[in-house]
Design a protein around this nucleic acid. Sequence first.
DNA 1: TTTTGGCACTCTGGGTTAACGAGTGCTAAA
DNA 2: TTTAGCACTCGTTAACCCAGAGTGCCAAAA
Lengths: 391, 391
Amino acid sequence: MLTERKRQILRAIIDDYVVHAEPVGSNYLVNKYKLGVSSATVRNEMSELEELGYLEKPHTSAGRVPSDKGYRAYIDLLLDLKPVSQTDQDKIESFFNNHMTEITTLVRQSASALSEQTNFPSLVISPRYSDTSLEQIKLLMIEPGKALVVVVLSPGIVKDRMIRIPHEIKQEDLHLISKIIEEKLSGQKLDQITLITISAAAEDVPVPESLLNQVLFEAYVSIKQAENIELYIEGTHRLFNHPEFQELALAKSFLDTMHQEGIVAGYMSEWESMNAELELTETNNPEEIEQVERTRREQPYLKENPSYMVRIGQEITLKGLEECSFITAAYKITNKITGRIGVIGPRRMEYGKIISQINFINYTLDQQIMELASGYDRKEDINGKEKEEQA
Amino acid sequence: MLTERKRQILRAIIDDYVVHAEPVGSNYLVNKYKLGVSSATVRNEMSELEELGYLEKPHTSAGRVPSDKGYRAYIDLLLDLKPVSQTDQDKIESFFNNHMTEITTLVRQSASALSEQTNFPSLVISPRYSDTSLEQIKLLMIEPGKALVVVVLSPGIVKDRMIRIPHEIKQEDLHLISKIIEEKLSGQKLDQITLITISAAAEDVPVPESLLNQVLFEAYVSIKQAENIELYIEGTHRLFNHPEFQELALAKSFLDTMHQEGIVAGYMSEWESMNAELELTETNNPEEIEQVERTRREQPYLKENPSYMVRIGQEITLKGLEECSFITAAYKITNKITGRIGVIGPRRMEYGKIISQINFINYTLDQQIMELASGYDRKEDINGKEKEEQA
DNA sequence: TTTTGGCACTCTGGGTTAACGAGTGCTAAA
DNA sequence: TTTAGCACTCGTTAACCCAGAGTGCCAAAA
């Protein structure tokens, strides 16, 4: 039903529209893209494409614009992933250059890079840590009545939190408590740890129960807090560089939705769970498989099983974002623990370019995380390097 | 030169304009505010007020709008600080209700409250910690090759940071290192601590020098990082609720400036240093002193020496913010260590209301910080309270 | 000297009309 | 099946007018 010529025309329309943001007409199209047929023919084709639901008319005497379905077809059938230019690669890598030592910073930095590269707002969501296990828990006395809880999860994630404790608790008590509960709890999955487990673990600590309970409760809260999914949004102001958000009403509803903490996070994490199945459906077309094969050889950052996902317009079920597109990819902390990174913008996006950027950034991020996890020793003489680093 | 009647008219114009955002004319004014004179008289007065620079005309046949100088006079001479309504007080206090345990969360929460209350973007800037002193420094082994540095500053501020360390370094080494440098350095002002001081402090630690140096360097960086001034901006999307930002160009230049991390932070911290002198100049008028006296008795959160500061339009020397006003107040961590909290918005603001809100929030914040610093023991039975807390 | 009514003048904003141009859809011929 | 031709639609822009709001100034009144 989608003849080769129809595809060609659809591709040309989308390629043009995403750049110029204006409905494209038949005449313009044949001239610019040398289609080798007359505008009347193109008109007929366009009319059929419209009937099939791939195109829409803003009004009678305008050209056509892609519909959700049109974009969807473009992405599934016509997408041409451009390799990331060397300068872009350099720019992105420079974002990671100042040896960061925490995964969260690494991930946020990626989001910044992504937003800057694409000129759209970007977002990252942390993995669900509930089925990772607790590795360490330390209680550090800061001053009488105050302590720092440090929770270390198995993939090397560190979270900490200040707590209040009874003044009677001494440094040694804390040390003892954390040592004992760490011994008993380490290795357990986070979502199996409850207040009861902890209390049981600390049963025979020689500290008055009422005091002990306060500390245990705070420790418990700290562990639960470490499970929290975190959402981070970067560069919302870049939205205004795009004509569709000149209309204040749209921009406002967008920003309002994005600023309702829970909503986007909820949506994305729910999404993350459906992840696996959906990804598979993306590669069921011989043509596309061949293409994937080819790029895999040429650009390692375009991974074999493309981990990106695109949601267009009405496919997004969040109120206020019906006119937008999400493009996200999964980043790995371990093979089983993944978060998502992506951009959000108007449906009119240069999907090819942007997906390449995301893939590349995601690839770089994965590498950095791996490097971080494996750890390494710096070979250089620190004193010699010091001046450079401060400059 | 500003007769009583001129003041009255200026006040009426500003009061009206800040609410309705439309140039106000002579007829409207006499009707609405029952000035007891004819519109012709008001016209003459307005004309003179314009000559004096307090008013401006958008064009010949429009009414008048206040100029920067007009707003300035309003704030210095005519300001009427309204008490914060009980419902507002309750709303603000509810932002602080979930016993937060870290100053930074407290401060950010205040910014959220402020933005929500005023419907403008709010911002907070952390104090300069360079002349506070180091109280503790701990090195916590996370796994071979990775450690957590915890830096505690004298007013109870805690900052931490993951670092990489040589694999050869053992838990005990770390413990020893941190113990020794803490002993030697604690009590020193942050800006007096250098890499040299630290190296000297750790001179006789029995760890091979090349390994030790790496750790010391990272410790040093962590301390320096603790000095960093942090800026936090909240609620920028609220800008679009105000008519002056319907013009995309304005909104864009605003957002762009705000998102250039360094700029606003630099401006505000520079400002903070001029703080003391400027505040004094605000109270040199018998009338105002009397007013301050009165409100001090009635609302404790309107402090005796009002700590708020207002910068209007051209008074702000940041590019892109010439059409805006800053209102900020200093919050105290200790008597000597202060940060700033405030809002930024169009010049057309209800200064009276907003300043009251800031004062109140600032007052509440100060109280919370004090309470945090003093620490307290919870009297309640934790187990009894637990269910409520989770709900 | 100050205030006021009256009046001419200025400028904006809304509404109407007309011309224009881009693009379509249809028909009939190639 | 493709294409040239043409009528038709609709949005955009500019020109124009008019009403309304507000000013500035003058001369008379307080």
